[in-house]
Design a protein around this nucleic acid. Structure first.
Lengths: 199, 199
DNA sequence: GCTTTATTCAAGCAAGCGCTTGGTCTAGAC
DNA sequence: GTCTAGACCAAGCGCTTGCTTGAATAAAGC
């Protein structure tokens, strides 16, 4: 599953052959069938396993004590780790190969996603009520997820910004500076050495 | 090219066969070769053409008179139209099938993308200087692009929010309310009838 | 009327695809 | 010592893939 996720992420589901997977795991070209049956089942297993692990992490964060801002910061950091850290290919596959997943396998994944979103919605609700959320709009969670998930498109390990720095920048982007200094003056743009290229 | 873009968007580049394209355009299975030579060339042409059209639109916006906020709003609206409007499959293909594009064809596309980003950077710079940009961070353009581009993942035509409404919500998300009332009190979350489901 | 040019057809080739088949090997249970 | 279950091999089947081939058709140029 780990090797499959890596290959799916790099080449896409349709761009990866079962022979590629067999070769990457040191098996003969047909031996994988014993474990999964169909190629689709590999994809489903990768997505479900990735989502299950991610859920476990953020549900633990959601029950922490402390202010909503701290929980939000932890959520963002966990989300980016799940998305970008080395060896974490499961969630990118979920995000970028969704259209390759058979319709019959989708409802189970969608249900897990709903649980994932529910955790965020709870924390975002607290942030809105406390006035720390910068711009309440009807689709702010979707815009938030977009901004975060898109990082997987341009992030390269070893770049100028690591995952903790990215998480800090993202949090600063979404939240007012602090809840005490809610409407303070402008802060100058802080530059990083070299900006990564977007797409 | 139009049919190819539609198929690539729906099924992905690897998930679309040249026979699918031929059938969609009423040709026999090998006749497309006369026009493009290779399947890769179709992909390249789709991406380049889409980017060229998008550039034409936003470069016209960038030279408009008026405040930076008006230009920013127009940029967001144009970007979303390019991404979501019916028949606009070229840019989604560029965004979501990039890894299928041969390395040799990439530099030309990257050069066009750089021009696209330069237009945005100019307007964003004006917004930062005027104090209207809500949260200046080192990667704000990338986060902005992510939030916008991700909409293509969950947007369905005919949903509760049309493209102009989405553009308004996005602008509200990124900018302070108005330049006059820069640090006003909270506004309540405005709800839409039914929220679309994210992924 | 003849030639050229642009476009498409009909057939098919070589390679790669997901998956199947029948069999082998190994470790543990009895 | 025999049996069973788990894991894998080696070969290959039927089908699809991107692309090629040589010929046909139609319009335009001279």
């Amino acid at each position: 599953m780990r090797e499959s996720a890596r290959l799916f992420r790099e080449r896409g589901y349709e761009g990866t052959s079962v022979r590629d997977i067999a070769a990457a795991t040191g098996l003969q070209s047909g031996s994988w069938v014993y474990h999964f049956g169909t190629k689709q089942e590999i994809l489903r297993a990768v997505m479900e396993e990735g989502l299950r692990r991610a859920l476990e992490r953020i549900e633990a964060i959601a029950v922490r004590r402390g202010g909503p801002r701290a929980r939000f910061e932890a959520l963002v950091h966990a989300h980016l780790e799940t998305l970008l850290a080395p060896g974490q290919d499961f969630i990118p596959v979920l995000l970028y190969d969704w259209r390759s997943l058979d319709a019959g396998a989708r409802p189970a994944i969608v249900a897990l996603q709903a649980r994932y979103e529910a955790v965020w919605d709870r924390v975002l609700g607290e942030l809105r009520r406390s006035g720390e959320w910068a711009a309440p709009t009807a689709i702010d969670r979707l815009l938030l997820f977009g901004a975060l998930n898109w990082i997987a498109h341009w992030y390269r390990p070893g770049g100028p910004l690591g995952i903790p720095a990215l998480a800090r920048q993202a949090v600063a982007f979404f939240l007012r500076q602090t809840s005490r200094r809610r409407s303070g003056p402008e802060r100058p743009v802080r530059r990083v050495p070299r900006r990564p290229r977007s797409r």
